[in-house]
């Protein structure tokens, strides 16, 4: 299976990079764009064919390495 993990900063956590991007967008003349938040996407392939097992494995990866639960949320998308 393939997994796509989206990692974002938790609500309320200051995102200075998002703010800078917002400022740059406004500088380019894009009006009406706000609340810019920057995150990251991690893609990986798994040998697992069972979706529940794959999800459990990726959850474990997120908790132990891919995301920092102090400041980040994550969501997992699995495809065959």
């Amino acid at each position: 299976m393939k997994a796509k993990i989206t990692i974002t900063l938790k609500n309320g956590v200051l995102d200075p990079q998002g703010k800078a991007i917002e400022g740059a967008l406004s500088g380019l003349g894009f009006s009406g764009a706000g609340d810019v938040r920057q995150g990251k996407i991690i893609e990986l392939k798994l040998d697992e064919t069972d979706e529940a097992a794959a999800r459990a494995k990726v959850e474990d990866m997120c908790r132990r390495l891919l995301a920092n639960p102090v400041m980040e949320n994550y969501s997992i998308e699995l495809t065959a």
Binding site: V13, L14, P16, Q17, A20, N68, V70, M71
Partner: peptide, 17 residues
Amino acid sequence: LTEAGLLPGALMRNAGL
């Protein structure tokens, strides 16, 4: 140390970038 769980919290990008 924070990433290893020996200290609480996290060190984020400087507020002023």
